[in-house]
């Protein structure tokens, strides 16, 4: 509808865009989609859980910060492979990733969530919320598990998760964007692609069951608050021992 205003990359039919997003999602997710089917991940044993629970708080925080950072790096790669993302200004790429990367990490978690045992894949095995006790933020951990459980129950396809993730990132409502209309155009294309997919697969009911934007935002705020609380209790640890990308985004 705007052939002169839209760069070439943004004028693609819905299905092509969905395919492209799916490829980007599959290429940057861990575990890979093929490993999700009939997975054989072991559950952590009692002894292993106790070992994690006995770790000093600072060490457990550092360990989890590393895992989160690895996930964020994959989301950055996902963003770079999203059609149109790299055509946004560098400023806006940073704004969108800073605001949305953690939301995507949280949504992606549901892929490796085992509803039967209420566990999530962590460092190669399935872990329940009690494994993270030494972090000292039980409400945050519980909220994350609740989100993963809720999303897991929706049984989203990889295409749905890919588009949902893309829409979490390409959000023209984020503050501080320089070229909001440009982001909105890209968001619009993704939105149409998502709706076309849902109509084609008769999954329109999914829209009403997704976690609200407010819920994801609140979870990310909760995470930031806990990072601040940790810093007050363990001054210097974040600067000295946390991954630099984690510090940049959350501290």
């Amino acid at each position: 509808s705007c052939p002169h205003a839209c760069p070439q990359a943004l004028r693609v039919p819905s299905e092509l865009l969905t395919q492209s997003v799916l490829l980007s999602h599959r290429a940057t997710c861990h575990p890979r989609a093929e490993d999700l089917q009939g997975h054989r991940w072991a559950t952590f044993s009692r002894e292993e859980i106790c070992a994690y629970q006995s770790q000093p708080t600072a060490e457990m925080w550092q360990r989890c910060a590393r895992r989160v950072t690895e996930a964020i790096e994959r989301v950055v790669e996902f963003a770079k492979r999203l059609r149109g993302f790299l055509e946004l200004s560098q400023h806006d790429q940073i704004v969108l990733l800073k605001a949305g990367a953690m939301e995507v990490v949280l949504v992606r978690m549901c892929r490796a969530f085992d509803a039967a045992t209420r566990t999530v894949l962590f460092e190669g095995k399935l872990a329940g919320p009690e494994l993270f006790r030494s972090l000292g933020c039980p409400e945050l951990v519980a909220s994350i598990f609740d989100l993963a459980q809720g999303l897991s129950a929706l049984r989203c396809s990889e295409s749905e998760l890919g588009l949902l993730s893309a829409l979490l990132l390409v959000n023209a409502g984020r503050p501080w964007l320089q070229d909001r209309p440009r982001v909105a155009r890209l968001q619009g294309h993704l939105d149409v692609a998502f709706r076309v997919l849902l109509r084609r697969t008769r999954r329109e009911g999914l829209l009403a069951r997704l976690p609200s934007p407010g819920r994801l935002r609140a979870l990310c705020s909760q995470h930031l608050e806990q990072v601040q609380a940790f810093r007050r209790l363990h001054p210097g640890v974040v600067s000295a021992a946390f991954p630099p990308l984690y510090r940049e985004l959350f501290a």
Partner: peptide, 17 residues
Amino acid sequence: LQEKHRILHKLLQNGNS
């Protein structure tokens, strides 16, 4: 903004891995 997010900026600049 780029000054405060050097690592993110660098990741965005690098070629795909």
